[in-house]
Amino acid sequence: MYVEIVQGADLSKILYINSDGASAGSRLADSLDRDEFAVEVLARRSEATKALDQLEPDLVLVACAAPDGGTLRFCAGLRTVSSVPVVVCSPSAREADIVRVFEAGADDYLVTPMRSVELTARLRAVLRRTAESPKKQQQGDLLVAGPIEIRLKERKVLRHGSPVDLSPIEFRLLTTLVHDIGRAVSHSKLMAHVWGPEYVDCRHYLRLYIKYLRTKIEDDPRNPKLILSEWGVGYRFEPVAA
């Protein structure tokens, strides 16, 4: 069952899951800014789906000693039933662990321990970033660029009419590129829009996810025609005939 810690109608609701009972994770929950967040602690990971329906949180924060298979499966499963942003925090700073967490559908990864002010800033950035999508929908819920169709409200992508399974990060990356169709988008702008301003220097994440995206939407990922590299600048989405 979940345990209510703080309630507040004007606060962002955080569903906190200490997946392996680590004491560091408990300290992390205690460090959350209670003037900004209403925190709900989930005692058992298996009850996450029920808690999502009942609490309707703005963000899910998952703490673990290391992002093992159970944590990754949990994140991937959560992504299939909800679009709520997911943040994983762990003491592990291994790049392989961080990449696997993003691949499982998480929106951010935090290396603990970290100061309360930094934790608050990072969670605030994720909430702000994920809240930007509805604003874009005011320009229309459908983007069509060559063989690619993006349904913003449904958060779905079609290629030549067939669904493409994209992670939340891949979806944001593609949408950001298509919104500036035909124009080069700088590395820093892509990093800030997709991951947040604190990631502008982590270009290896961007290169990795451009590779993933090309694998899913290009006819020949080794000879891309849609997502083009602008050397020294960034990337450009160039539509071709559908």
Rank of each mutant, 00 (worst) to 15 (best):
K216E: 11
C64Q: 08
L123K: 06
V111G: 13
A48T: 13
L206G: 08
V87T: 10
F102K: 01
L15P: 06
R122N: 04
S12Y: 14
L142T: 13
D20M: 03
Q54R: 12
D219R: 11
D33L: 05
V240E: 09
N223D: 11
E95L: 13
P91I: 03
E218W: 06
E132N: 01
H187W: 05
K135C: 09
Y2W: 14
L177R: 04
A121R: 15
L166N: 06
F74C: 10
R155Q: 15
T80G: 02
L158C: 07
N18D: 15
T175Q: 14
D30C: 01
D165Q: 13
V126C: 11
S26N: 09
C202Q: 13
R183V: 00
L174C: 09
V144D: 01
E118P: 00
S92M: 09
A29T: 03
P221R: 06
L206M: 08
E118Y: 09
G146P: 12
K156F: 01
K50W: 02
C89W: 00
H193Y: 01
V87H: 14
Y212S: 05
H179T: 06
K216H: 11
V3M: 09
P85H: 07
L158Y: 15
L177C: 04
L11H: 10
R203K: 14
I14S: 07
E154S: 10
G182Q: 11
E4V: 14
A184T: 02
P197F: 02
V200W: 07
K13Y: 12
C75K: 06
E40C: 06
L213K: 07
S167A: 01
Q139R: 14
A241C: 01
M191H: 09
S186F: 04
P168W: 06
G69A: 13
A184E: 13
Q54D: 13
T176Y: 01
A106D: 08
Q54I: 02
